[in-house]
Simulated scan of single mutants.
Amino acid sequence: MEPFQMLQISTYLFGIAALGGVAMGFVRFTSGANPPSWLAMLHGFLAGAGLTLLAYAAATMNVPAFAYLSLLLFAGGAAGGVFLNLHYHLRQIPLPKWLVIVHAGVNVLAFVLLCFAAFAGA
């Protein structure tokens, strides 16, 4: 498989995961309650699949520098997501809004960088 094709598929996976993240953010900020667990798990699964594919491409192929930076940021964002899930969501404690915003901001920046890497150089 071509490096840019792998980056593009990773971008699609992250894009679908981002739609779930927007839905979860909408639930958290409008109702004050945590989003449903099934949506959080689907969001994490899709993001994890995108991260795994991105890491594989970065480790085995020659990819643009933006892809490596994106990988680092997504890994940090994933760590934040795992923390949100394990420390707050599973204990049914309301997710801190500031931490949700930081998680989203890091991942949006990573997504933009991945889009540049996947589509600008192809």
Rank of each mutant, 00 (worst) to 15 (best):
53 L>K: 05
78 A>V: 09
83 F>Y: 15
42 L>S: 15
4 F>P: 00
121 G>V: 12
87 H>T: 03
84 L>K: 01
54 L>V: 04
101 I>P: 00
66 F>N: 12
65 A>P: 06
34 N>E: 02
25 G>T: 05
68 Y>H: 15
103 H>S: 04
1 M>W: 08
27 V>A: 09
82 V>H: 06
3 P>Y: 02
66 F>H: 11
79 A>D: 04
27 V>T: 14
20 G>V: 00
68 Y>R: 08
70 S>C: 00
74 F>D: 03
100 V>G: 01
26 F>M: 12
57 A>D: 03
89 H>R: 09
84 L>N: 02
117 A>I: 09
16 I>T: 13
36 P>Y: 07
69 L>K: 06
104 A>H: 02
63 V>T: 15
117 A>S: 12
26 F>E: 11
85 N>A: 09
103 H>A: 04
60 T>W: 10
76 G>M: 13
34 N>C: 04
76 G>F: 05
21 G>N: 01
77 G>L: 07
23 A>F: 07
9 I>S: 00
101 I>L: 14
21 G>H: 00
5 Q>E: 13
67 A>Q: 05
121 G>K: 14
68 Y>K: 08
9 I>G: 03
115 C>V: 08
65 A>I: 12
55 A>Y: 10
87 H>K: 12
89 H>P: 05
72 L>F: 14
76 G>W: 01
15 G>T: 06
37 S>L: 11
107 N>E: 14
39 L>F: 13
20 G>S: 04
101 I>R: 07
77 G>C: 10
27 V>Y: 07
56 Y>D: 11
101 I>G: 04
58 A>P: 08
113 L>E: 02
119 F>W: 13
116 F>D: 09
78 A>Y: 12
54 L>K: 04
15 G>S: 08
16 I>Y: 08
4 F>C: 05
9 I>L: 10
72 L>C: 10
44 G>R: 15
104 A>R: 02
54 L>R: 01
104 A>F: 10
90 L>N: 07
55 A>W: 11
103 H>W: 05
27 V>D: 08
108 V>E: 07
17 A>R: 09
88 Y>A: 02
75 A>G: 13
99 L>W: 07
92 Q>S: 11
29 F>M: 15
27 V>S: 06
13 L>W: 02
4 F>T: 11
120 A>D: 11
97 K>R: 13
109 L>T: 15
68 Y>T: 15
51 L>K: 02
14 F>Y: 08
21 G>M: 01
62 N>S: 15
93 I>E: 08
35 P>F: 07
67 A>D: 04
63 V>L: 11
15 G>F: 04
19 L>M: 13
